[in-house]
Amino acid sequence: MTWQEKARVQTAQEMDRSLRRMAHEIVERNKGLDGVVLVGIQRRGVPLAERIAKLLEKFEGMLPPQGKLDITLYRDDLSLRYPQPLLRGTDVPFDLSGRKVVLVDDVLYTGRTVRAALDALMDLGRPASVQLAVLVDRGHRELPIHADYVGKNLPTSHAEVVEVRVAEIDGADEIWICEKVEEQA
């Protein structure tokens, strides 16, 4: 079984526009950047959080603190998986207490990753509030979780995957819908 590209959903320029709009919405919602921190979920949430932070610096003249969150040890499917997913590390080098945390991830799907991320965050401190920013919301939620900032709403089927590619990891900025194909014998 492999995944095959089906349709490109966003180009680099479109992705950049989405991120800019999301950055503006973050400023608008929080009436500035006072107390705002960005926490990217490993793996692709991390570079996305860094980009939003840089845009916020450009718009507001201050760079909000950024952290990385590894939610692996909080997953709800660890006793179902073999082999175990590997850790990439959490690095939140500031106190979360009283901060307005903007969690950043690439794709929002079942909501289970965000559930795990909320538990992981609460073990690090007690934020004043947590908001969620995702580049793609593809629907099919299994938990009562919703995003505050969305780059693109994308209706999908369960048989598809949404691949967000970022230059820092994948060499290019793109969003693709991919689907399963049976390997040719």
């Binding site: 590894d70 692996t72 040890l73 909080y74 660890l78 590997l86 850790l87 990439r88 590390g89 959490t90 690095d91 538990d119 073990d123 690090l124």
Partner: peptide, 18 residues
């Protein structure tokens, strides 16, 4: 992986639900 586990030892809450 042990490096990431050692990071946990510095936190006020060291327990994870893995």
């Amino acid at each position: 992986q042990a490096v990431h586990m050692e990071d946990l030892l510095d936190r006020p809450i060291k327990k994870v639900p893995a």
